[in-house]
Design a protein around this nucleic acid. Structure first.
Length: 263
DNA sequence: ACCGTCGATGCTATTCAGGT
DNA sequence: ACCTGAATAGCATCGACGGT
């Protein structure tokens, strides 16, 4: 069979209208189903958990930046539905990348604030802050766990903690950092470097340094605001943190397409 | 009672970040 | 770039617990 599409046509028998097959492709129902399965499978592979954007502010104001970072890693190991940690107590320090004695100190902090609870030797993430099931409201942000596990190899715990502190301020539509993501769209105020430093309670130079590193490795993107070229705003990589359902739109995809975390 | 395992604790050297 | 103090890792030790 060496027939090319050019020689094929699809004709509507009642109207006589014909479709040039060089413009279309023909797929069997089976192929369609297979395609859907692949799509669904790929969709499902994007493992994520949720952080409650409102309640984690409590953690942010009480827990040190490094501990916030460690928590971000630890919440990647939640069982779907129950929030049970899938690591044994012994495996945890290695998984989050710290020594036993440091882990003990971290662990104490987590338990004292009820972020992680101990139910007869099994450990659960408190769903008030972090959970892996259907959210009850939309003030939540998805954390893609496979991406985060990759990320922890190239950033420090305090840099992860910095990202954690930004999570309550991610805008629903654009994934940009803004002052108040809950407010009406016309009142949204996107934040520049100075404002972000203020937000996380950090010296501007330090925040700037971290933002720069995160930009270089593709975790955030910096965009010039239309009215002022010096005033730049920041977008989180939607393949790591994302609020909307489904996949990021074209604009967001384009922004991160060339980064290691671009899909 | 003894032993072995595991986690907790305290001490010290080292590392890291912040301030100058 | 340097100094200083705080946080952390590494190590030794202690105590709790379970099995024999």
């Amino acid at each position: 069979m060496s027939t090319t599409n050019r020689q094929l046509a699809l004709v509507n028998l009642s109207t006589g209208e014909s479709f040039d097959m060089s413009e279309y492709s023909l797929r069997s129902k089976k192929q369609d189903e297979a395609y859907k399965r692949i799509q669904y499978y790929q969709y499902d592979k994007r493992l994520f958990s949720f952080a409650d954007m409102d309640t984690i502010k409590f953690i942010i104001s009480n827990v040190s930046t490094v501990h916030c970072g460690y928590l971000l890693i630890l919440q990647c190991y939640m069982e779907f539905g129950t929030g049970k940690l899938t690591l044994t107590r012994k495996e945890m320090p290695k998984a989050v990348g710290m020594s036993e004695s440091t882990f003990i100190r971290f662990w104490k902090v987590m338990q004292s604030y009820g972020i992680i609870t101990d139910k007869g030797g099994e450990f659960y993430m408190n769903p008030y802050f972090h959970f892996r099931q259907q959210p009850q409201h939309n003030q939540v942000i998805k954390v893609f766990t496979t991406k985060l596990k990759q990320l922890k190899e190239v950033v420090t715990a305090s840099e992860l903690g910095f990202l954690y502190k930004l999570l309550p301020f991610v805008h629903y539509d654009t994934n940009m950092i803004c002052a108040d993501p809950v407010t009406e769209p016309e009142n949204i105020q996107f934040l520049n470097k100075t404002q972000i430093a203020l937000l996380v309670g950090m010296e501007e130079k330090k925040a700037s340094k971290i933002l720069d590193k995160l930009r270089k490795i593709g975790v955030i993107a910096e965009t010039i605001r239309q009215d002022d070229k010096r005033d730049r705003i920041f977008t989180l990589n939607p393949y790591i943190f994302y609020r909307k359902k489904g996949r990021p739109d074209h604009t967001l995809r384009g922004l991160f397409a060339s980064t290691p975390y671009g899909k």
